[in-house]
Each structure stands twice: as structure tokens, then as C-alpha cells.
Simulated assay, not measured.
Amino acid sequence: MKAHLLLASLLFPTIAIAAPEKVFNGTGLEGWKVQGADYWTVAEGVLKGESDDKKQNSVLWSEKSFKDFTVELDFKFSGDVDSGIFLRHENEQIQIGTSRSLKRDLTASPYIGSKRGYPQEAAGVKELLKADDWNHMKIVAKGKTYTVSLNGEQVIEYVSDTAKESGPIGLQIHPGVKMKIEFKNLTVDSL
């Protein structure tokens, strides 16, 4: 057995695999910029977006752009929330919470600009989404294809004909709703 391991290590040298990039350091907003209202704070390793009575729009954009990537994060919300993860620009998003236009939860579904809206709905989200608790989302953006998993289960694969080649990642607070959403363990792995 030891001889097989030795032979394998000689024939196939170790390939260094980079760990996913922690794009949120848990202590501050370094590497991010706010567009809109200043609703973002950090405490005890958690990034919190909380709007006020003005209910303004706010997006927290990564300063870095990404081409093909996997973004993973934990999120938690309670009550009415309309948030999401922008992928490479403001017209391509994976929804978190209630759609303002459709008045129902469309978590993990793609929102593709105002003309397309929600072209496809994620499956099984109602059973997987944990209310008032941490949920894990994984989004693989490879070319024009978005594959989304919620709490370890793939819920959608969508091909967008309007996907950009590269761009930043954004976290949204939708205008018109007083809400709070929290994120932690946010990483990006370039493919």
C-alpha cells in the first residue's frame, strides 16, 4: 500500500489548489463600496444591511470584478425582505426574499432586468428555506449559466442570454421596504 502511495506521489505531483477568496473579512467593509443609502454595518463577523424609514435603495458592490466564479455565503432574515446577489452587473441577480412585483418569496430565483423579470423559478425553496435562521447559498456563475444551491440542494440552473463576461458582485437592499438582512462567510472562488 505504501509503495502505491509513493508511486502515485511521484507520478502525480501535488497540485496547489487555491482556497476561495474571503471577499468579506468579517471586521469591516474593505474591498467594498456602497451605492445608494449607507445601510451597511459590520459587527461580530456579520455584515448587516438594514434600511430605515426612508426605505432607500442600497447596493454594496465588491471593488473587484469576477469572470467565472462560485460565490458562497450564509444569509439570515426575518419578516419582509427584498434582497439579492447581483452577478457582474445590476441587471442579473439571484433573489433573496419577496419580489416587490410578484408579492411572494422567490429566494434563489434569477431576476434578469425589468423587461424579463423572473424567467424561471427555483424549485423546492419553500421546503429548504429556514425562517429566522442561517441559510447557505452557493451560486456558480460560469459563462451565461447560473447554478444555485440552497442549503446543500441545487434548486435551479438558468442560462441568461444577457449575462456580462465579468463584473463585480453586489448585495442589495431594495427600495420601498424597511428590512434587515445579514450575511457571513462570504467567499468567491474564481473558476
Rank of each mutant, 00 (worst) to 15 (best):
K48E: 15
D53H: 12
A37H: 04
A8C: 11
G84F: 01
G97F: 01
K178Y: 08
K130N: 09
Y39M: 00
S62T: 08
T98G: 04
G113Q: 06
L128D: 11
E182A: 07
G97Y: 02
N151V: 05
S109W: 12
V46H: 06
E44H: 14
F66V: 03
K178C: 03
Q35H: 11
P110R: 11
E121L: 13
V125A: 03
V34K: 04
S99M: 10
D80S: 10
G113S: 08
A18Y: 09
Q35C: 08
D38W: 08
T41D: 12
L102M: 14
L171S: 02
G79S: 09
N91V: 02
I173G: 02
Q95D: 10
K76Q: 14
A19V: 10
P20N: 14
I85V: 14
G84K: 00
V81Y: 06
E127P: 05
H174Q: 11
G167P: 02
V42I: 12
V140I: 14
R116W: 11
F77K: 03
M137W: 07
E165F: 09
G31W: 06
S83L: 02
A8Q: 12
W134I: 00
G36P: 06
F75T: 01
P110A: 14
T107D: 09
A37V: 04
L191P: 03
P20G: 13
L7G: 07
G45E: 14
K54G: 04
S190K: 15
P175H: 08
Y39F: 11
V34L: 05
K55P: 08
A131M: 05
S190A: 15
Q172A: 09
L47H: 00
K130F: 08
Q154M: 11
A122K: 03
S65M: 06
A122V: 09
E157I: 05
A37M: 05
H89K: 10
D105P: 04
L106R: 01
H4G: 07
D80E: 14
V148S: 01
T145V: 15
S160Y: 03
M1G: 13
S109D: 11
G117E: 10
L129H: 02
L191W: 13
T98K: 08
L5Y: 13
K138T: 15
A131H: 10
K142E: 15
I94D: 04
L60R: 00
S160R: 00
D53K: 02
V42Y: 04
H136Q: 13
T98H: 06
H174S: 05
K126C: 14
V177Y: 10
T162C: 04
P13E: 09
L87E: 08
Y39E: 02
E72R: 09
S51E: 08
T27W: 06
D53C: 03
D105G: 02
V81G: 02
A37W: 04
V42W: 14
Y39R: 00
G124L: 13
V34W: 04
E90S: 05
Q93G: 03
F12K: 04
V71D: 06
K55L: 13
G124A: 12
S65E: 13
K184E: 14
E127A: 15
M137E: 07
L73P: 00
R88C: 02
R88Y: 05
T187W: 11
E63D: 15
D189F: 06
R100C: 07
D82C: 07
E90W: 05
S166K: 12
L87A: 03
L186S: 05
A141N: 12
S65V: 05
G36K: 01
W40K: 00
T187K: 06
E90M: 04
